[in-house]
């Protein structure tokens, strides 16, 4: 089966620095692919290129065979790619359900309508989406007063509004408590599984990654140094050295300390 997303030789330079260097990978339908690596390894740069925030210096990104590299975020979204942000981005002056309605209004191209009432449009669909993420009881709350974990769930509902084929999630569980993280990721995995959506996500919490990723890619200094299953990555010595840590690094000091 042909991949949903196919990235070839993706590179991005900032001056002389190669933030992302010749990265290639495929993402299959329904796959949960994790992108991990130390801070500054190029994960965000890579992500921003896939989402259109940043233009690649070279390389191609194909979504179902169509090149999307260099397109603006809103065009990529219209092609069926959703995203969630590392630092949640929601509309603070609206209610929870209006946040989701906004995505639906945009999806149905009614943004320039002046005669209808926005709060009445696509309300049922929006409530149904909130229901899937367990937020329907908070639908009428003011977005600005939500707890962080609820904002994350709202963002997920918003990202699902246009029935995406691919979801890009930037550190979906950042800033959450451990129990919350596991719950959120389980919820995400279930929804995506049910809808057959493919996911590429970055994450710092290895518990989350090891528990949910189907496959893991490791980025270090802009280069893809490993790409494999959970077990392959866990036992890859190079990955242990640059990222996971093998516990040997401070052996000497530890001994001295004891």
């Amino acid at each position: 089966m042909s991949p949903i997303l196919s990235v070839r030789n993706l590179s991005r330079n900032f001056g002389a620095i190669k933030a992302v260097d010749n990265v290639s990978f495929d993402l299959a339908k329904g796959e949960l692919l994790a992108l991990i690596g130390p801070n500054g390894a190029g994960k965000s740069t890579c992500f921003n290129m896939l989402m259109g925030q940043l233009k690649p210096s070279s390389g191609t990104v194909q979504l179902l065979g169509k090149n999307i590299a260099g397109l603006q975020p809103r065009k990529i979204w219209r092609m069926g790619v959703g995203r969630t942000f590392q630092i949640t981005a929601t509309y603070a002056s609206m209610t929870v359900v209006e946040n989701v309605q906004m995505a639906l209004i945009s999806h149905h191209r009614r943004l320039y309508s002046l005669t209808s009432f926005a709060h009445k449009l696509y309300r049922e669909e929006a409530l149904a989406l909130l229901d899937t993420v367990g937020m329907v009881d908070q639908a009428e709350r003011h977005c600005a007063v939500l707890a962080y974990g609820d904002l994350k769930r709202l963002e997920l509902a918003v990202a699902l509004a246009h029935d995406p084929i691919l979801l890009l999630m930037d550190e979906p569980t950042a800033g959450m408590a451990p129990q919350e993280r596991i719950a959120l990721m389980q919820l995400t995995a279930d929804i995506l599984d049910a809808r057959g959506i493919s996911v590429l996500f970055t994450e710092h919490d290895m518990d989350v990654v090891f528990a949910h990723a189907h496959r893991i890619m490791v980025l270090n200094r802009g280069e893809l140094i490993a790409n494999g299953t959970v077990d392959e990555i866990r036992n890859n010595p190079q990955v242990q050295e640059v990222y996971l840590g093998g516990g040997t690094l401070f052996k000497a000091q530890e001994d001295a300390h004891a």
Binding site: R74, F85, I105, L111, S113
Partner: peptide
Amino acid sequence: HAPFGYAMRAARDSARQAEAMG
């Protein structure tokens, strides 16, 4: 109160999210 006014607020509240939703 129309979608247009909401879109204006969306662009104001979070241009990042607004662009990312088309």
